[in-house]
Simulated assay, not measured.
Amino acid sequence: MNIGQASKASGVSAKMIRYYDEIGLVQPSARTDSNYREYGERELNELRFIRRARSLGFSMAEITQLLSLWRDRERPSREVKAIAERHLAGLDARIAEMQAMAETLRHLSRCCAGDDRPDCPILADLTAGSLPSEPKTPSRRRPA
């Protein structure tokens, strides 16, 4: 099948298929006499593999490692599991960071009167440059 058909069958855009081919992520596909790429079941399986790995947030480097292990039928599964667990730890850390950011913003939003006065704890916090992991209690000054 041609690249358009492979794109439709795999769910990966033709542009990304060309990119993956260019960087060597996928194994080279066969070429026609006029130098067009031809895709078969092997290439489709690799593209689907990549699409799924990307949807789980794996980096290109991790996908390269996973593809290499997937192609190696004598691989130890512990290597695959180690990659997945490192990725999961990274996801957990990012989730914790985002939860801390959300909690800080929730707190600042509760402290802001949201009225016609210019005083705003959210802007005061942004000006102070505090980090989400270091929430501070903004003051609620009243105009005199």
Results as ranks from 00 to 15, higher is better:
residue 123 L to S: 07
residue 42 R to L: 13
residue 55 S to Q: 03
residue 118 P to K: 08
residue 5 Q to H: 11
residue 48 R to G: 10
residue 142 R to N: 12
residue 73 R to Q: 13
residue 140 R to N: 11
residue 88 L to F: 13
residue 113 A to C: 04
residue 73 R to E: 09
residue 89 A to G: 05
residue 45 N to P: 15
residue 49 F to H: 08
residue 83 I to C: 05
residue 24 G to D: 00
residue 67 L to T: 12
residue 102 A to D: 14
residue 43 E to F: 14
residue 93 A to G: 04
residue 140 R to H: 10
residue 129 G to W: 01
residue 112 C to N: 08
residue 140 R to C: 08
residue 32 T to I: 11
residue 106 R to H: 14
residue 47 L to P: 00
residue 88 L to H: 15
residue 100 A to L: 01
residue 127 T to L: 15
residue 21 D to S: 15
residue 7 S to H: 02
residue 111 C to Y: 14
residue 10 S to H: 10
residue 112 C to V: 08
residue 63 I to A: 02
residue 63 I to G: 09
residue 47 L to C: 04
residue 101 M to H: 12
residue 123 L to W: 09
residue 97 E to S: 10
residue 70 W to Q: 02
residue 57 G to D: 02
residue 108 L to V: 01
residue 88 L to Q: 13
residue 80 V to M: 12
residue 27 Q to C: 11
residue 37 R to F: 06
residue 84 A to I: 09
residue 58 F to T: 04
residue 9 A to H: 08
residue 40 G to K: 02
residue 47 L to G: 02
residue 58 F to M: 00
residue 13 S to F: 02
residue 86 R to Y: 02
residue 129 G to P: 00
residue 21 D to E: 15
residue 134 E to T: 12
residue 15 K to C: 05
residue 123 L to M: 05
residue 44 L to F: 05
residue 61 A to T: 15
residue 114 G to F: 04
residue 142 R to L: 15
residue 80 V to S: 10
residue 111 C to P: 05
residue 104 T to A: 07
residue 16 M to D: 03
residue 94 R to Q: 11
residue 54 R to G: 03
residue 70 W to S: 03
residue 39 Y to E: 01
residue 21 D to V: 09
residue 108 L to K: 04
residue 95 I to H: 10
residue 110 R to G: 03
residue 59 S to Y: 01
residue 77 S to L: 12
residue 40 G to E: 01
residue 128 A to S: 13
residue 99 Q to A: 07
residue 62 E to Q: 02
residue 18 R to D: 01
residue 63 I to M: 05
residue 112 C to L: 03
residue 92 D to Q: 14
residue 42 R to M: 14
residue 3 I to S: 05
residue 134 E to D: 04
residue 4 G to T: 13
residue 118 P to C: 07
residue 70 W to R: 11
residue 87 H to E: 01
residue 23 I to N: 08
residue 143 P to Q: 00
residue 109 S to N: 09
residue 88 L to V: 11
residue 54 R to I: 07
residue 55 S to M: 01
residue 65 Q to F: 06
residue 144 A to M: 14
residue 74 E to A: 08
residue 68 S to H: 14
residue 104 T to M: 06
residue 83 I to T: 12
residue 92 D to C: 10
residue 84 A to F: 02
residue 139 S to M: 05
residue 29 S to N: 09
residue 48 R to C: 06
residue 57 G to P: 00
residue 35 N to C: 13
residue 18 R to T: 12
residue 20 Y to G: 05
residue 92 D to H: 12
residue 137 T to I: 15
residue 89 A to I: 07
residue 32 T to V: 08
residue 80 V to L: 05
residue 22 E to P: 06
